[in-house]
Amino acid sequence: MFSIFLKAGLAFGGGLGILAVLEQELVDQRRAVTREEFLGAYGIGRIVPSGTMTALAIAYGYKFGGLSGTVIALTALSLPVFVLTIALTIAYHYLRNSRVFDLFPITILPAALALIIVAALKLGKDVFRPSRELIVAGVAFALALFFRFNPALILLAGGVVGVFVFQKVKEGNDTAEKDSGK
C-alpha cells in the first residue's frame, strides 16, 4: 500500500494526476475496488475538508489497513510534496539575501499571479458567460474588493445562495460528468 500511494504522491498535475494513478492501481491492476465504488468515493472526497486525494488516501488506507493503514497511506502520499515544499521554501530563504531575489518581481511573482487567475478560470467554466453563476461570482468579487467584506463570510453566503439557486443546474452537470466518465 505504501508503494501505491507513494507512486500517487509522485504524480504531477494535482488532483487529477493522482486520481489517474490511484484508479489504475486500485481498480485496473489490483482489482481491489470496483470502478463504481472508486468513483463514489471520489464524489464524497470532493466535499471532504483536506482535499479529495487526501480523503481517498484516508478512505482506502482505512479500508485495507485500519487506522494504521491511514497513517501509512497518508505518509506515502504526502511525503514527496512535503519534502519538496520544504526544500523550495528553504531555497526561498537563501535567495532572499541574494541578488536573485530582486529579479523575482519581474519573473516568478507575476507568473504565479497569472497561475492563480488560471486556477480561477478552471474552477468556474460556467462563470464566464451570461448566467446566474456570473452574477454570484460578480457580486462576490465586488463585495470582497470594493466593500472589504470578509471572504470567509462571502464563501458561506455563496454556498447558501447556491442551495436555492443551483440545485437543479448542478444535477444536469453531474449526469453529464458521469456519462463522460464512462
Binding site: 470532493r46 466535499i47 499571479l113 492563480i116 487567475i117 486556477a119 480561477a120 474552477l123 468556474g124 460556467d126 462563470v127 453563476e133 454570484v136 461570482a137 460578480g138 457580486v139 462576490a140 468579487f141 465586488a142 470582497a144 474588493l145 471572504p151 462571502i154 464563501l155 458561506l156 453566503a157 455563496g158 454556498g159 447558501v160 445562495v161 447556491g162 442551495v163 436555492f164 439557486v165 443551483f166 440545485q167 443546474v169 448542478k170 444535477e171 453531474d174
Partner: peptide, 19 residues
C-alpha cells in the same frame, strides 16, 4: 450539491478580487 456549487462560483469572484 447546491451549496458546493454556490461556494465554488463565489470563490471564483473572491480569487479574482484577491488577484
Amino acid at each position: 450539491k447546491g451549496f458546493t456549487k454556490g461556494l465554488t462560483v463565489a470563490s471564483v469572484g473572491l480569487i479574482l478580487a484577491a488577484v
